[in-house]
Amino acid sequence: MTLTSSTTVETDDVTVVVATRNRHERLRETFPHHRARTILVDNGSDEAPPWFPGVRTIPLGENRGAAARNVGVSLARTPFVAFADDDSYWTPGSLARAAATLRQHPRVALLAARVLVGPSGRLDPVSAAMAAAPLGTAPGGAGPSIMGFLACSIMVRREAFLAVGGFEPRLFVYGEEGLLAMDLAAAGHELAYDSSLVVRHLPQPAGRDNGMRARVEARNRVLTAMLRRPWGVVAREFGAGWRADRRGAADALRQAGWAWRHRRPLPPGVERDLRRLWTTDAAEITPVDNGRL
């Protein structure tokens, strides 16, 4: 049985999946805050991560990026899974409230929490964008409908997540959330933002390679469009990617064959929602820092 690192368990319906890589000191700070059964997935750290009593640790032996979370979800045995990174945690009461909301709203497959960044607790711009998103709230819905999120601040319905394949390994990190949001929506699920749920995010900016990040974000933006969007949108996203980072856009072109083989255009309703978001720039907000796996 996978147990929790905390003396307080808020709900037996949730497993927290924590992905970590080479941030052991921060992990020691955040891990005791998890108030549910927890699975720790180590993404090929240079040294073994800290040991926490009663917690199942999965050493991958390599860095799989966001797809490391898929491993944790597959091993969970609860109906709902919350994600956290080694620099984030759900605040007291949020896990139990999110689980209760998912029980009450069976059409919702993903709930996104409000993210407060750093010691001062400043609101992440992505959270502000989700609260103001123009899609409205579905009748009887759990909150404003969304088509994007921060991966370290969501709770998912485990079966729905696994059915769509989770996070795409080819995207690795930086912008991997968009494709998952599209696939859940295409499968008929609702995605909602709930500002009563709170996640604290304590990023450590030192040591980040912003040039690499820009390249991967540009690549993933184009690849995601190739996989799901109309060709006119693909052309637009390639142009944006080329202006942002030519190497990233070129990387996407080199993977066009793979993208074509895995291409599944979205249902018209989902594509229409994405276009509404694009026209308001709500989908273009950049998070303060979405972590490094």
Rank of each mutant, 00 (worst) to 15 (best):
E168Q: 08
E168L: 11
E168Y: 07
P169H: 05
L171P: 01
Y174F: 11
Y174L: 10
E176A: 10
E176G: 05
G178M: 14
G178E: 14
L179F: 09
L180M: 02
A181I: 00
A181V: 00
D183C: 01
D183Y: 00
D183G: 00
D183Q: 02
L184H: 01
L184D: 00
A185N: 03
A185I: 01
G188R: 00
G188F: 00
H189A: 01
H189Y: 04
H189M: 01
E190C: 05
L191C: 07
A192P: 05
A192H: 06
Y193T: 07
D194Y: 06
S195E: 11
S195K: 07
S196E: 12
V198K: 07
R200T: 09
H201T: 03
L202W: 05
L202G: 03
Q204M: 13
Q204I: 14
G207K: 02
R208L: 01
N210I: 12
N210G: 13
G211H: 11
G211K: 09
M212A: 15
M212S: 14
M212F: 15
R213Y: 06
R213T: 05
R215I: 06
E217I: 12
A218Q: 03
R219A: 04
N220D: 08
N220V: 04
N220L: 07
R221L: 11
R221A: 07
V222C: 07
V222Q: 07
L223K: 03
T224W: 05
T224M: 04
A225C: 08
L227Y: 05
R228C: 02
R229T: 06
R229N: 06
P230A: 06
W231H: 15
G232I: 10
G232Q: 11
A235W: 08
A235L: 10
A235S: 08
A235E: 08
E237P: 10
E237S: 10
F238I: 05
F238S: 04
G239E: 09
G239H: 07
G241F: 07
A244M: 12
A244H: 14
R246V: 09
R247M: 13
G248H: 03
G248P: 04
A249M: 03
A249T: 02
R254W: 09
A256F: 09
A259D: 09
W260N: 11
W260F: 14
R261V: 05
R261E: 08
R261M: 09
R261F: 05
H262I: 03
R264E: 08
P265C: 04
L266Q: 01
L266Y: 01
L266M: 02
P267V: 03
P267T: 03
P268L: 07
G269A: 12
V270D: 00
V270E: 00
E271D: 13
R272E: 14
D273I: 02
L274H: 10
L274E: 11
R275V: 11
R276M: 13
R276H: 12
R276V: 11
R276A: 12
L277K: 05
W278K: 15
W278C: 12
T279N: 14
T280I: 03
D281E: 15
I285V: 15
I285E: 15
I285M: 15
T286D: 13
V288I: 12
V288D: 13
N290A: 15
N290P: 14
G291M: 02
